[in-house]
Design a protein around this nucleic acid. Sequence first.
DNA 1: TCACTTGTCTATTGAACTAGACAACTTACC
DNA 2: GGTAAGTTGTCTAGTTCAATAGACAAGTGA
Lengths: 251, 251
Amino acid sequence: MLTRTPRGSSNKNHLLVRGITLWRCIADDFEQMILVGKYDNGERLPAESEIAARYGVNRHTVRRAIAELGARGLVRTERGSGTFVKTDKLDYRIGQRTRFSEIVAAAGHEAEGRLQGHRLEPASEDIAGRLGLKPGDAVVRLEIVRASDRVPISIATTWLDGQRFCEAAKIFRRVRSITRMLEHYGISTYRRKWTRIGATFTDAVDAGRLRLSVHRPVLVVESLDVSPTDEPILTTRGRFAADRVALIVES
Amino acid sequence: MLTRTPRGSSNKNHLLVRGITLWRCIADDFEQMILVGKYDNGERLPAESEIAARYGVNRHTVRRAIAELGARGLVRTERGSGTFVKTDKLDYRIGQRTRFSEIVAAAGHEAEGRLQGHRLEPASEDIAGRLGLKPGDAVVRLEIVRASDRVPISIATTWLDGQRFCEAAKIFRRVRSITRMLEHYGISTYRRKWTRIGATFTDAVDAGRLRLSVHRPVLVVESLDVSPTDEPILTTRGRFAADRVALIVES
DNA sequence: TCACTTGTCTATTGAACTAGACAACTTACC
DNA sequence: GGTAAGTTGTCTAGTTCAATAGACAAGTGA
């Protein structure tokens, strides 16, 4: 019988790390291989039983690892057929009409936005300037995690005028969409005025929220949405998992 | 009763990572704090019960984390008194007479050398040149992990003339010291001829063997030891945990 | 002596991992 | 169309490890 032998000569020893579960080690191993291109997009992974044999572990352990890869959005599993690498990115087109749920739905996926936190705070100079307020004026701050087919795509901070949209969090939690939330305030249409794009890497916190490893690339997107009459409505600062999204700007 | 609540509001949630044990997260957290200097050398850590309360975990879990920190050589625990940060480094003086066990013993610690692997191989051009052999000549290669008070200090590869020292591995395993191993060959004295020092970072393999995190600094030390009559005896390539050792060269 | 610290013990619960079996599905081949 | 081989999905069962809970021993220091 195979048992965990800390100093033995088992063939899975090379990835046994104290305090880290086996399935996590195997998942990280495969993530690494996929990210460096040892498996192409659409390529089939070895069968679960073969992976199990290769690492010298039980098939259930491999299944747990593959489930993790699925949660990270790296693979898609088809019963009877196999597990396939999925490294194609969601095309996120940035234009005047930029709506997360519409982009995801158009790509044939299921959109989801979850409010992770909110508060009323005084506007910084930067935020006040964007929204046409005075520094220190109350603004509503929303922290939203967006996912496509349960895979986290971005985490975004959204600021709105605190007087006009003081119920924003409560409404968003119910309708689960910025567009529908704004409809409650009688705003049926709005457009993107500008978008600033930068890049950085995940820290431990972002990595957890986006289900990424640390030090993975992140697109930092700041934007301002305005009404048809050019009144500022909301401004955001989002972090997109660059492994899962490509921003497209047409000009 | 406190249970692991994946989406609850427990105060330990901020460090719960799927597939990584709690004690490991806490140990990594403290390592980070110690390395960044939030605790000075010799400073006492909070009591186990206080740490447990702070993270919202059981004291046993904290004890497991502290045991890990001890294994990494970051702290020393004294019964009845407390756990103290230990970030002072072993002074490893490089001179003509450089012997690991003597250095460690002189510092009041217990030296240990463990042979992790060995083989007979053809000498590379570099190694042959150092030992005064022809490329392709047989050399004995030893992989040795050295520790001070059970804390790994270095991993070293040592090459010797394969003809003259063909029993080197067997003897080393018994006497557990290069110096005593050479005595079996009638070599009672030898001296360091040259030492080359470089630096790099731990990869996953080195990190495991040295009980370090990945991307910690490593001193790369190559050297040649010769007999009193300048005959090459052995050459080494060692990797020292820079968090635990400082090399001292006097001139 | 007393308060506080680490060390050790027992017991319990849930997660991780192993083992084996079989169902459900896909694909290729006859 | 049917079959067989190969794949993922699900179930039961058992062992080991992680974490909790509580109690008490043993040591430190004022």
